[in-house]
Design a protein around this nucleic acid. Structure first.
Lengths: 338, 338
DNA sequence: AAATTTCCGGAGAACGTTTTCCCGAGGTAG
DNA sequence: CTACCTCGGGAAAACGTTCTCCGGAAATTT
């Protein structure tokens, strides 16, 4: 009972393997009577198609590889979940690989996935430039979409949130609620999210008040850095602390409270990403919510390239870069200063 | 260059496909000279074995299916990560499925994974009893290990933390730091973690002070319930609030602060699981840390059943249930009351 | 009525491995 | 010298699909 094959169904229904395959796959019209008999036999025997054999013959596994830098990074689980959902809706399964933030491991895992003949790759690159080489290599073999973070211009199709728009939302909100002396807690490095959010803040803050001194400090995307950064900027008494992501913001929130600052009375704090932790912080964190489901859906859509053969026409097919608009989630940490 | 097959390597090295397979798989001794030639040719052509063909022939995909109830549940990402790591160490890849806490979806996903001919299944059941039927079905077809939550006795091999031992650690700690009037914020339902932690608390509390009134309230494993539950128990002024997991504890912490209670001065709060959020709460949460890496390693170990053929000898092979000892993480929320 | 097309179904060749046979050469034992 | 292994290697059969030919019958056209 474990292994019923097409042969068995063919024998039981008194016709050929080819016919059974056709009726079950619906790949070619087949006589109504025969079809019924076949379907019945298949049902009765409990036939279940063997995806492995199918994959070998049709050269398509229906599996896409998903490589993430750190599944434990709190922003990724919801993204992974939506990706899994979106891909599954298209009949594709997800082979998961975690590369532990290491570009070399990343390269190795990509190699293995290719060996397993995934139909496509979904990749959140671990490093802006050190991931590049492997990515172009892989992209030459299968459809590949970069997610959340970029990997240099023109390397591959990519989907991400519009970081600049998100930062603009934050700055508008702060201005509208009377904040006048913001500062920015960002991340150094060349990761696209870090760069985009940083430059968007600088542009927006300058537009708001060209005469204001610019207060920006850069570290990494962590709670610890958020805490430490507060000590650097608090002496200048900003009335708003704009953070490059939620982890930094949570750290800032903790340290500000320790220092006896009133949030949001004395100072507003904002984050970015809207990880689950953001709503649970105290006070709850105003942040920019990434349209995770849409990002996933868009990525899934980009994965299907034209009808197979069209995959390798021009080596310089134009690269598509999708940017989706985020949404501002206003919570207690930026309530209007009275 | 995309598809170099054994045939190509054979042709290039002037020997037969069989020989090439043998030398590359190392499945049978082969002449030193020939081996060298073959390896050289393979290297030169950039041969990469086709896992799909291999799987078809050898009836083993090297893929294990992992079904989780909700990847976004904050306890799972770290577990998934360690599982992926442990399995990858054994040369196996992970096909991920999220069933959205729904037993029917769970059943469907398990079916698909079996259709894809996974070698084994790793399952965190969505529901203690409604998942049972599918599980026994699946377990009859491939090695299957239940993780974190049980699914009725004797259904399949399982790996989980020793909830009773964890709860005992908590109670000992509270007793040692002078807490005398604990209460318990638990979860209703039959999920094994909920039941075990609840009964362990009751047994431990009774042993501590048989005359103490028992204060236990039951809801679900959520922050919201933690907040709500505090309103129910705070009037009786416990000096310790023991929670069935970290989410409940975080909610309790928030509500207690709102009510003006001093944690840990007036009352200690403890959690369970040690999710990332626990260390970031304010005050940082004392909790029970699950040995995630060991759980994963043990699960991976259980998956390899005797040498293939031994898989279906007695229909009533004894079921193995591994329980691993947790560790108490003492943080600020239970500092000794002075 | 003959010629052409359409329709349904079967035989069998792929897909890229692994593995079972089989064969010949050389070595050892009898 | 014959008989029997061992050893290195090849031919070919699986594994379970899909898909391309092909052939015959029925339906349509000329």
């Amino acid at each position: 009972m474990a292994d019923v094959t097409l042969r068995d169904v063919a024998r039981a229904s008194g016709c050929s393997v080819a016919t059974v395959s056709r009726v079950l796959a619906g790949t070619r019209p087949v006589g109504a009577e025969t079809a019924r008999t076949v379907r019945e036999a298949a049902e009765r025997l409990g036939y279940r198609p063997n995806h492995v054999a199918r994959a070998l013959r049709s050269r398509s596994t229906g599996i896409v590889g998903l490589v993430v830098p750190q599944i434990a990074n709190p922003f990724f689980p919801s993204l992974v979940r939506e990706l899994e959902r979106a891909l599954h809706a298209g009949g594709r399964a997800v082979l998961l690989a975690d590369c532990d933030d290491d570009p070399e491991t990343e390269a190795a895992r990509i190699g293995e996935l290719l060996g397993r003949r995934v139909d496509a790759l979904l990749l959140i690159p671990a490093d802006e430039r050190r991931s590049r080489e492997v990515v172009v290599d892989a992209a030459a073999q299968v459809p590949l979409v970069l997610l959340d973070r970029g990997c240099g211009p023109g390397v591959a199709d990519s989907v991400a949130v519009d970081n600049a728009a998100g930062m603009a939302l934050v700055l508008d909100h702060l201005a509208a609620t009377g904040r006048r002396r913001p500062c920015f807690l960002g991340a150094a490095g060349t990761a696209s999210a870090a760069v985009e959010r940083r430059t968007a803040y600088e542009a927006g803050a300058a537009a708001l008040d060209p005469t204001a001194p610019e207060r920006t400090v850069l570290g990494d995307f962590s709670v610890e850095w958020g805490r430490a950064a507060v000590d650097r900027i608090w002496p200048s008494r900003p009335d708003a602390v704009v953070c490059a992501n939620d982890l930094i913001a949570v750290g800032a929130l903790q340290r500000l409270r320790q220092l006896g600052a009133d949030v949001p009375g004395d100072v507003a704090v904002t984050g970015f990403d809207d990880i689950p932790l953001a709503g649970l912080a105290d006070p709850a964190l105003t942040t920019v919510c990434q349209p995770v489901a849409e990002l996933a859906a868009e990525a899934a859509r980009l994965l299907v390239r034209g009808p197979a053969g069209a995959a390798v026409p021009g080596p310089r097919r134009p690269v598509r870069a999708v940017r989706l608009a985020p949404e501002l989630i206003v919570r207690a940490s930026s309530a209007r200063s009275s």
